[in-house]
Each structure stands twice: as structure tokens, then as C-alpha cells.
Amino acid sequence: MATRATDPCGRTGRKLAIFLQLTLNGLAVGCIYGLVALGFVLIYKATELVNFAQGDLLMLGAFVTFMGVVWWELDYWVAFFIAIVVVSAFGALLDATVLRRVIGQPQFAVVMLTIGLGAMFRTFASVTWGSEIYTLPTPFSGVTVIGGVTLSHQYLSIVAGTLLLCGVLYAFFTHTRIGIAMQATSQNQLAAYYMGIPVKLIFSLIWAISAGTAVVAGVLLAPVTLIDINMGLAVALKAFAAAVLGGFGSIPGALVGGIIIGLIELYAGATLPEGFKDTAPYIVLLLMLAVRPQGLFGTLARKKV
């Protein structure tokens, strides 16, 4: 007691350590939201469809990896790779068979369509894998302690994975022919089509990429939240808030929005009364929308008559 009174530095140090701890965890959770929001935004930018089934694609990815690792006893990385390939292919197939037919219909119809698809995926998962809660064994299980801050390798893997994926996607969109074709398509479909870009194929590829990011998010998240059929829903709602916070249609906005939502969630959970952990992100979102309805990075365009 006496030492504490004479040594305020230690107390501040401990507070700082807690703060850093929260920041790191918030950053990790925020990265997951950011990745899912990135999936939303990629699809929205290209096709103007809002995909509410993004969270359920995440769930499917986590389950496929789980099946690979636990049922077939594959290596973690092999199972991860298989999950990305399978779910991406599924995303492309979904676009080619179902979602292409609703392009041009009111946005609301598409939202409901993807909500319906999400419900079907959850039922599929519950029939195929059962509705229990599963744990996914991962190579990242240890912790590193630096100056009172516990760095869990699970959280570090999330942050590293997000950074890596964003780097890869950035390089892909700016330095490859097909990536630039995707940018062109999302700017002006008709012009892109006239330039000889296969627009339908590009849309399917974007769905595949978006499903792939969802899988990465799902597998990285799996050790933290465990795997069950509803894991996608909660994440998708928060990620959706993140995408809107950043301004729907802005890729950096999605990531920044995700990280903001993650940090707010963790800080609110630690400092505010119980119950604010889940609502604080939405309160901030509502305030933000009241002040800046187009989001942080969004641009407001007027419709011309």
C-alpha cells in the first residue's frame, strides 16, 4: 500500500498496460470486422448488390476448415487453403446462378434475397455439421508477454493475416491486368464492357475474392469465438455497421470503420456499465450517421434529373 502511494508511476504503468492490451485486442477484433466489411464493399462497389450473406460465408469457411482439420486430420494450412478454394468457388457459383438475375432490381429486394440465402446456409451448416459449438485447433496458441502486455498469438495472427491479405489485394487490384479490369468495371460497367472486359466473369471473380476474404476472416476468428452456425451473424452485423461507418463503397473506409468499431467495442466493454459492449458501436454509428450521413470516407453525390 505504501509503495503504491509513493510510486504513482507503477499505477500509471499498469493502466497503460491495460490500455495497450485493450487496444491490441480491439485492433484484432476490428481487423475481423474490417475484413468482412471489405467483402461487403468489394461486392457493392462492383455490382451494387449488398450481400447480407457475407457473415454466413465466413461461417461456411470456418466449418470447412474445421472439417478438414478435425474430421480428415489434414494440416491446418492445407485445410485453410481448401476452405478458401471451396468457398470462393461457391461464391462465384452463387453469383453466376442466383445473384446475376437480380441486378437492377431494387436494392431492398437484393438485401432480402441475401438474407434468405444466409438463412439457407445456416440450415445447411446445422444439418451437415450439427448445431454444437466446435473448437478449431490452430498453430497459434501461445502468448508472448512484453512489459505487462499479453500478446496472444491468436490476436497477433489476426492482425498479421489482415495486413497480409490487404497487401495482396492491393497489389492485385493495382498491378495485375485483371485487377485493373475490376477497377474499371466498378467505375463504369458499360464502358468496361465496350472495352472488351468480360463483365459477367469479373463479377463472379469479385464474388469469389469477397468469399475468400470472408473465409480468411472466419478461420482467423475461429479460435477466438469458436465455431457455431450463428458465428457469422453477429460478426456480419457489426461489420455492416463498420462498412457504413467508413462510407459504404470505400475500401480504406471499410478497414478503418472495422478497426474503429472493434476498438469502441473493447473500450466500452472495459469502462462502461455492462450492456454497452454490444450497443456502443451502434450508438456511435447512429451519431455518425446523424452528423455525416454518407459515412467517414463516403462521397455525397446529387442525383441529376
Binding site: G116, L117, A119, M120, R122, T123, S126, V127
Partner: peptide, 16 residues
């Protein structure tokens, strides 16, 4: 959870 899936399927079919 099958009921939710049936609702979802009907929703998808109706919209399409």
C-alpha cells in the same frame, strides 16, 4: 433450424 432455412428458400424463390 430447418424452419429458418425453409423460410429463406421461399424468400429466395419469391424474389427470383
Amino acid at each position: 433450424g430447418v424452419e429458418a432455412g425453409i423460410f429463406g428458400l421461399i424468400l429466395v424463390l419469391v424474389i427470383l
